[in-house]
Simulated scan of single mutants.
Amino acid sequence: MTKNLNPSPQDPIASRQQMILELLKTRGPLTLTELASYFECSTATIRRDILALERLGDIRRFHGAVALSGVTGPETSFRENALRFASEKTAIGRILAEWIPEDAIVGLNGGTTTTSVAKQLLAARRRVTVVTNAVNIAHLLSDGGIDVVVIGGAVSPPNYETIGPIAIQSLVTLHLDIVVLGANGVDPRFGVTTTTEQEAAVGRAFAERSDRVIIAADHSKLNRNSLFQMLEWNQVDDLATDSQSVSVVAGWAPQAEPLMTYEDAVLYHLRSELPGRLE
């Protein structure tokens, strides 16, 4: 995370707790590990802060993360996350809808960014088949006339996606041309990360069955790490992000080739041994 606040030396504990509230307000639910990384302190220190804030009624814990008490459940969290960096997510969706070729078999995991990709595929009337574990994406696309294959499994409320052994087994016999994966964090040191082990496992299964792996993430997800690794950085073929990420990507991968720029988004090609565009 990029730090833009500094704890007060007069009252560092109270100041840090106030900063935690500000972070949760602007970024949404975060894990203890993410907060500890931000403040460069131990998870035990953050846990004490969280307990203090929880006693005051300012925050609540759910699904391995903490959120402001006003976030009443997974459905609210999804809607609020969809509003954060909404224009960036729309731009990412549009550039991928423009780049993905006709007749491609495309995998999409759950999340607000991949939901934006699905909406833009629908708006562009792309002739594709989508394989997804996200119930909301399946409903959206099937209503719009796009062929959809839904992965089975237990439904996880935050992103309306199926997880667990059934979901992973459902992918074993499938082949995908492209998979577009959303994530909570992207960093070349720790790769692509997410907040739950189950989501990470399904993301890995998607990647293993696909010829090409694209990470879709706005600038707020870059240089950020969540608890569970989905993929190593060298397993990512392309990165679709918004234009505010240009300097970050240049620092990570000077050899990265911009495949396409479209409105306020950029699609970067990270692996030179793959062609720039699927035919």
Rank of each mutant, 00 (worst) to 15 (best):
K3F: 03
N4K: 09
P7E: 01
S8P: 03
P9K: 06
A14G: 15
S15T: 11
R16W: 00
R16T: 10
T26D: 13
T26K: 12
P29F: 01
P29G: 08
L32T: 14
L35T: 05
C41D: 07
S42P: 00
R47Q: 05
D49Y: 04
E54F: 02
G70K: 00
I92W: 01
L96I: 04
P101D: 05
I105T: 15
I105S: 15
V106I: 11
L108Y: 03
T115F: 15
V117R: 02
K119P: 13
A124S: 13
R127N: 15
V128N: 06
T129V: 06
T132N: 03
N136A: 09
S142E: 14
I146K: 09
D147N: 14
V149S: 12
A154N: 09
P157K: 06
T162M: 09
I166H: 12
A167T: 12
I168H: 11
S170K: 00
G185F: 04
P188M: 07
G191E: 09
R204G: 01
D211A: 15
S220E: 07
L222M: 13
R224C: 00
S226F: 10
Q229E: 14
Q235E: 15
D238P: 12
T241Q: 01
V248T: 15
Q255E: 15
P258S: 08
H269V: 01
R271F: 05
